[in-house]
Write a protein that binds this DNA or RNA. Structure first.
Lengths: 215, 215
DNA sequence: CGTTTTCTTGAGATGTGTCAATCCTCGTGG
DNA sequence: CCACGAGGATTGACACATCTCAAGAAAACG
């Protein structure tokens, strides 16, 4: 049913997809690439409130203006549905709504984990947490559990990381350097990260060992 | 349908309803009183991640252990449903699932607003924001919009406020005193707040004037 | 290659946390 | 009715993590 009404849109890295407050008459899911949801205060302070990786969903049925800025962080391909058509499918096919509820509950859990990070973690713990989160999601795409030695590319600039973590860009940079000095991570170039010991990283993140994932 | 399977439970102020990780075989909605969801790190740092006021929902269909500590802040009455029975109703009555999806999306929006607060607002803005949020929800119960002069009771201790805001209890206390000195709020006793000018408070909260509520 | 953007590093300022003392407020028992 | 005690709240002094402002270095790009 959804197949019949879907269409694709692509965006270049850096492009803003919608601005908060704009009309948004579609919902979408990320096919490839990375996008962010963020809020901005009048004076320019910005906080990322969602990180959209492949398979993640954007948009809210039953609302027609965007509540957040949506930005493509990398080149991005999205699979879109007109909002009206999607809502019709939701009504005729309860399973779609159920699936969406599940995904929304997962997002809510992630948001709450994120709130703990923002409210109570130190800068070092924040960086370690973010790296762990990305490592996990990266591994999940390959249907693996991260453990022992892990390598991947950071999909975020230092500035995007600072928006994610509620820090300044400079503090992000300093703490990455510190974690590197301490042997927790290994950095090649600006973006390529190697984690010699994943458990050590989790410890630095301040999470209890299971990482809070209680699926 | 839900009527047939509901039952009530009540809790005293301060009582913990479930601990994170515990088995939780019911879902519930708050009838009266206030409860909180919070996460705790091993070393005791705590962050509130949900504030449950009357009509709010707790629990997650499709999961059987609690992801957060749930605590009664005041005396509390909850309307409960066995999880299994509730899930059955959800399947047979799509409307219930739709309603739950709507509520979950609202919670997600609230969580994201909260993330902006935690990540980017100053202590003074955090306090002003929290007072505004409570004033709004208080007014909403009476089907009003807060404006001009507003009065209500703070349902949270200083410590609970600090857990909400990602601050220490002392900073909360200092900033409340500062807002009082500056005439933004008026405090009688420990808990009773009067806001002489609601718009002034919103300004102090750093929110854009509409308060981010784009129903 | 030169230019631009992104990242790193430093020095100093500042907001919030920490530790500790004191003060309310209110309920309890003498 | 008052003294007492206990928990919550306020305030102060100082420490320290993070921010700010600024200069350079390293990639990325044309």
């Amino acid at each position: 049913m959804l197949e019949a009404i879907k269409f694709y849109r692509s965006f270049e890295a850096g492009q803003t997809i919608v601005w908060s407050g704009d009309r948004m008459d579609f919902v979408a899911s990320v096919v490839s690439g990375i996008a962010t949801l963020s809020q901005t205060m009048e004076d320019g302070r910005r906080q990322m409130v969602g990180l959209l990786l492949p398979s993640d969903f954007v948009g809210r049925p039953g609302r027609d203006t965007a509540a957040y800025d949506v930005t493509a962080t990398t080149d991005l391909l999205m699979c879109c549905f007109r909002k009206k058509a999607f809502e019709d499918v939701m009504i005729s096919t309860p399973h779609v709504g159920q699936r969406l509820l599940e995904m929304t509950l997962d997002e809510l859990d992630a948001a709450r984990e994120w709130m703990l990070l923002l409210g109570r973690k130190t800068a070092r713990e924040k960086i370690a947490s973010l790296i762990a989160i990305i490592a996990r999601r990266d591994a999940a795409l390959k249907l693996m559990e991260p453990q022992g030695r892990v390598s991947f590319d950071l999909p975020l600039s230092r500035e995007a990381m600072s928006d994610y973590l509620g820090l300044t860009l400079e503090t992000v940079s300093r703490q990455i350097s510190a974690l590197r000095r301490d042997g927790v991570i290994d950095v090649k170039g600006k973006r390529q990260i190697t984690i010699p010991d994943f458990d050590r990283l989790i410890e630095e993140a301040g999470d209890d060992s299971d990482g809070g994932f209680l699926t």
